[in-house]
Amino acid sequence: MTSFPVSSSILSATHLATFIQSRYNLSVNTTCSLLKAGVNHSYLIVDGETKFIFRVYTLNWRSVTEITEEMKLLNNLKEHGIPVSYPVQDTDDNYIQELSAPEGKRYGVLFSYAPGGKSLSYSTEIHYRVGEAMAKMHLVNHDQHINRVTYNAAIMLEEAVTRIQPFIDNNADEFVFLEKVKRYLVTQFDELSTSTLRKGIVHLDIWYDNMHFDNNGDITIFDFDFCGNGWLCLDIGYYIMQLHKIEKEETEYRLKLKSFLDGYKSITPISEEEMSAIPLLGMSVFIFFLGIQCNRYENWSNTFLNEIHVKLFINLLIRRWYNYHQLPEGN
C-alpha cells in the first residue's frame, strides 16, 4: 500500500488533552474538544470550572516570530487593561508549543477563555462599548510597530485579487467590477500614504465572531491572528462594514453605527480624514479576506468556496457597500 504525504490534519482532541494536562500542570480531569477547524484549529480546554482555548496553527501559516509578536502584543494590551484573551505560559514559561503533525511541525498556544458568549446582533449600548474598547486598544497601539505584516495596497488588494482570480470566470461581470474597484482603491491608498491617518498596530478582524459579551455587557476581544501594522481606521472600517452586512434595516444600522462611533469618540477622536477613508478601508479588508479564503482552499475553505460563493461575496458585500457609498469603480 502506498503511503501518501498529508497536507492538513486535525489533531486528536483526546491526545491533546493529555499533552496539555502535562505541559500546563492541569488536573487529570481536563478535557479537550474541537471547536472549529478554520484558518487555524481551535480546541476548548476544560479543567473543572476553568476554561481555555488551545489554538493549533496550520502548517506554515505563521512563523515563530509572527506568533511571538502576537503574544507580546496581547500581553501589552492586557497590562494596559484592555479586555483581551491572552496567552498562558506552560510549566517551563513557554507560550509556544511545537507539535509534530503528519504534515510537519505545527505550533500551538493556550489562551485564556473569554467570558460570556457571541451575539450576532446586539444592542446600541453594546455597540457603544465596543467602540470604547476599540478606541482604548488603539490608544495603546498608536504609533507602535510589531515584526509582522504591514497592510498596504499590494497585500490587501493586488495580492488578494490575484488569489481570487482562479476561482471566478475572469470575464464575469463580478470580476470585471472587482478589478475596477481594485484599481480605484490602489490609487486611493497612494493618496492616503501621505495623509495624517493614525498608524499603529491593528487587529484587522474585529467583528461579532471575535468578541464575547458577558451578562453585564462587558466585552473581551480575541483572535489577533491577523494583527499587523497599518492605519488604525482599518479596524473601524471593517467593523462598520460588518455592521452594514448584518443590519439590513437602515434605521437600525444608523442607530448602531452612531452608537459605535460615539463610544469610540468618547475615548479618542476620529479625524474627518479618517471618516472619509473608512468606506474605502472597510471594503479593502473585505477584499483581503476573500483573498485569504481563496488562498486557503486546500486546507480550509473548500467546504464552501466556489464560483457562486465568490460572486455572492462580491455582489452582496463588496458591491452593496460600494453602491451604498457611491464610490467610483475606477477604469
Rank of each mutant, 00 (worst) to 15 (best):
S284T: 13
Q21T: 00
L26R: 12
A114L: 00
R106C: 11
Y322Q: 15
S195N: 05
Y43R: 12
E272T: 08
E191H: 09
F288I: 01
Y86L: 15
H145E: 07
P328K: 06
P166S: 11
S7I: 05
E49C: 15
A160K: 00
I292K: 00
V109Q: 02
C233K: 15
R183T: 12
H15G: 10
G38W: 01
A135G: 06
S100A: 13
L204R: 13
Q188M: 11
L44R: 13
I53W: 11
L110K: 05
L16F: 08
N141S: 07
S33T: 04
T303S: 08
L243P: 06
S9R: 10
I206M: 01
D218M: 14
T303E: 00
I221A: 14
D205Q: 02
I206L: 06
Y113D: 00
G81E: 00
N302H: 02
I96F: 07
L316W: 03
M1S: 15
G330E: 06
T30D: 01
H127G: 09
E329S: 14
G200M: 04
L35M: 09
R319V: 13
L44S: 10
K105C: 12
K72Y: 00
N29K: 13
D225I: 06
N302Y: 01
F177M: 13
I206C: 08
R320Y: 05
H325N: 06
A154G: 10
N152E: 10
F189K: 08
E250Q: 09
Y95V: 09
L316H: 07
L255W: 02
M1I: 13
M71V: 05
L234E: 07
I168S: 07
L74G: 04
A17N: 04
L312D: 04
N306S: 07
L110Y: 01
I221K: 12
V186E: 11
V56F: 01
L59Q: 03
